[in-house]
Simulated assay, not measured.
Amino acid sequence: MSGKAPIGGALAIEVALKAEAANSLKALGHRLDRQLTELKQLGEQVRAMAPSPARDKRLAEYEEKRRDAEYRKWTLIVQREAMGLFNHEDVEEIYRVPPKLR
């Protein structure tokens, strides 16, 4: 009996698991990209507003969405590390979370 895993057995399961993990990363990246686009637009709106209670409310919304984007980016990095990817320079470059506003 050979020591190789059968094509239809463990190897197929491993390939399916890796494909599922890759799809999960892809989906998370797409969600983060959309979220960062919305966050950038919201930040531009806040910057264009004069000081007022309405601006304060939008600023609070911006900061909440910004924290969520930071968390989602961290989640993406954790999932990448779980897959054995430890260089995150591309993640830092592609998914830049906008700065805090005042």
Rank of each mutant, 00 (worst) to 15 (best):
M1S: 12
M1P: 09
S2W: 07
S2C: 10
S2A: 12
K4E: 14
K4F: 13
K4D: 14
P6V: 11
I7K: 15
G8W: 15
G9N: 11
G9D: 11
A10C: 08
A10D: 10
A10L: 11
A10Y: 09
I13C: 11
E14S: 14
E14L: 15
A16Y: 14
L17S: 14
K18Q: 15
K18D: 15
A19N: 13
A19R: 14
A21T: 06
A21M: 07
N23L: 12
N23Q: 15
N23V: 07
S24I: 05
L25S: 03
L25F: 03
K26R: 11
K26E: 12
A27G: 04
L28C: 02
L28W: 00
G29A: 05
G29K: 01
H30A: 13
L32K: 01
L32F: 00
D33K: 12
D33A: 09
R34C: 03
Q35M: 10
Q35P: 01
L36P: 00
L36H: 01
L36C: 05
E38Q: 11
E38W: 03
L39G: 03
L39T: 11
K40Q: 13
K40L: 11
Q41M: 09
L42N: 03
G43Q: 09
G43A: 12
G43M: 06
G43W: 06
E44S: 11
Q45A: 09
V46I: 11
R47K: 15
R47D: 09
R47P: 09
A48I: 05
A48Y: 10
M49T: 06
A50T: 15
S52L: 08
S52W: 09
P53Y: 08
P53V: 09
R55S: 04
R55D: 08
R55L: 03
D56I: 04
D56N: 15
K57D: 14
R58Q: 15
A60V: 04
A60E: 12
E61S: 07
Y62W: 06
E64H: 11
K65L: 10
K65M: 13
K65V: 04
R67Y: 09
R67F: 05
D68E: 15
A69D: 02
E70D: 07
E70P: 00
E70L: 04
Y71I: 05
Y71F: 08
R72T: 05
K73A: 00
W74S: 03
I77G: 01
V78H: 02
R80M: 14
R80D: 02
R80G: 07
E81S: 06
A82S: 06
A82P: 02
A82W: 09
M83P: 01
G84M: 02
G84A: 04
L85H: 08
L85N: 05
L85A: 12
F86N: 10
F86S: 08
F86C: 05
N87R: 09
N87Y: 04
N87T: 09
H88P: 00
H88K: 04
H88R: 02
D90G: 03
D90R: 12
D90C: 01
D90K: 07
V91N: 01
V91L: 00
E92L: 07
E92S: 07
E93S: 11
I94V: 13
Y95T: 00
Y95G: 00
Y95H: 04
R96P: 02
R96H: 04
P99C: 14
P99H: 07
K100L: 10
K100F: 11
L101T: 06
L101H: 07
L101F: 08
R102K: 14
R102S: 13
